[in-house]
């Protein structure tokens, strides 16, 4: 029994010795690289405001309308390309009453004055690039289509924009 134990111990020492020898002679390095990007932050900066609408009279707000167009402000990694997509309502609602909203338009620019803005279709989204300072501004316009018997009220809905790298 004692001989067996010694034999086992010897074998273990031998095994560890070989392993140690192999670890010393077979080594290599790899580089692990990760690029940390600035988180994307999206803010709903301004609502899409149709103001008054009258029964039977359609009303459009252009995406180029800096006062009434809906606006999102995006910040993130400087000069990074992003993908912009929307969840667009088909109707505005006031209680149980609804009113169609359609003909969405969009403009994106790297400044709040919309200088050099690029038109796009919000239905299909856009693939702009954040500015050198990591900014992007997106405007949305649309058309409200009140029926001739549209009931009085304040009609609202949410427009959702998602931005991903």
């Amino acid at each position: 029994m004692r001989n067996v134990s010694k034999l086992t111990l010897a074998a273990l020492v031998l095994a560890f010795g070989v392993t140690t020898l192999q670890a010393q002679t077979n080594s290599a390095n790899i580089t692990a690289t990760a690029t940390v990007q600035t988180p994307i932050n999206v803010v709903g900066a301004q609502q899409l405001n149709f103001g008054n609408v009258f029964p039977g009279v359609n009303k459009s707000v252009a995406a180029t309308d800096l006062t009434n167009g809906g606006r999102f402000d995006v910040t993130g990694q400087a000069s990074a390309p992003v993908s912009v997509s929307f969840t667009l309502p088909a109707t505005l609602a006031s209680g149980a009453n609804t009113m169609p909203i359609d003909t969405y338009t969009g403009v994106h620019a790297d400044n709040a004055a919309q200088t050099g803005g690029v038109a796009f279709n919000p239905v299909s989204g856009a693939s702009p690039t954040l500015s050198a300072s990591g900014e992007l501004f997106v405007w949305v316009g649309a058309r409200a289509v009140p029926a001739t018997n549209q009931a009085q009220g304040v009609y609202t809905a949410s427009i959702i924009m998602t931005v991903v790298y």
Binding site: Q37, P39, I40, N41, V42, V43, G44, A45, Q46, Q47, L48, N49, F50, G51, N52, V53, F54, P55, K59, G70, R71, F72, V74, G76, P89, L92, S94, M99, I101, V140, A142, A144, P146, Q150, A151, Q152, G153, V154, Y155, T156, A157, S158, I159, I160, M161, T162, V163, V164, Y165
Partner: peptide
């Protein structure tokens, strides 16, 4: 994944005038 995506919502609003 959370950091790579941002989402926000804005309201669209219209006031129907009949009075």
């Amino acid at each position: 994944r959370v950091l790579a995506q941002g989402t926000a919502a804005i309201p669209a609003e219209a006031v129907v005038v009949t009075v």
